[in-house]
């Protein structure tokens, strides 16, 4: 079971079943990615594997920031798939012993799949049999491919992480899509963490993981 309460204090997040996939939804600049990275860093500090798929930042930057956030992490169980697209598909171990895979574009779903497979294998070979995964963000992917394809992609990834026993987090910018799109994408996940910001204060609530939606709570 995965305990997320050090990052987000909700009873519903105290023991999340391995293989659960959660959508992290909120408007732009509300701290979705920060939250997802904190959840991964928390796991890394506890000896779990970490796998980040990024559509927006350089893989090297993501890796560096992640290791700053999780100074106690074993670098050999941290991996990043960079799909901003700077050339062809390739994977390499970094000087620090982490794994970095490059994909040609956020629309290259096969490449992302190969990257995820290689990262999972690398983490497994370095002793991480459970771990946490984050994809930031589905909103970028939705600009490269249609809703149908992204929905199926989410479902297939969720199935893969389910059988790997990982915890998956996928961020989406709720202000960038219509209701129908959000409603459909939501269905590919086991639950959702929703974020909002008012008067400079960030609040979150949890939906779908156990019983009714929770109350909004500051974090």
């Amino acid at each position: 079971m995965y305990d997320l309460t050090d990052v987000l204090d909700f009873d519903e997040l105290a023991s999340v079943r391995p293989g659960s996939n959660i959508l992290v939804s909120g408007p732009a600049m509300s701290g979705k990615e920060d939250l997802a990275m904190s959840v991964l860093a928390d796991g890394a500090e506890a000896g779990q594997g970490s796998l980040v798929v990024t559509t927006g930042e350089r893989g090297e930057t993501v890796l560096e920031e992640f290791l700053d956030r999780a100074p106690g992490a074993d670098e050999s169980t941290v991996s990043v798939v960079d799909c901003r697209g700077d050339g062809s598909r390739r994977g390499e171990a970094t000087a620090g012993g982490s794994y970095l895979y490059h994909v040609s574009s956020p629309g290259d779903l096969t490449g992302i799949g190969i990257g995820i497979t290689e990262c999972l294998e690398y983490l497994h070979n370095n002793g991480a049999d459970d771990g946490r995964f984050a994809l930031t963000s589905l909103s970028t992917m939705l600009t490269y491919t249609d809703r149908k394809t992204v929905f199926k992609f989410c479902h297939v990834l969720s199935s893969r992480f389910d059988s790997a026993g990982y915890l998956g987090l996928f961020t989406i910018d709720s202000s960038a899509h219509d209701d129908q799109t959000l409603q459909v994408i939501k269905q590919a996940f086991d639950g959702m963490i929703e974020i909002r910001e008012s008067d400079g204060q960030r609040e979150a609530r949890v939906l779908g993981l156990a019983g009714q939606p929770t109350e909004w709570r500051e974090f």
């Binding site: 629309g107 290259d108 779903l109 096969t110 992302i112 799949g113 190969i114 995820i116 497979t117 491919t145 394809t149 199926k152 992609f153 297939v156 199935s159 893969r160 389910d162 059988s163 790997a164």
Partner: peptide
């Protein structure tokens, strides 16, 4: 098996695009 095999996983993703 709910996509627990790497080849099935990648082939399924390729089929999507």
């Amino acid at each position: 098996g709910g996509i627990d095999d790497d080849e099935d996983f990648i082939a399924t993703l390729r089929g999507l695009s």
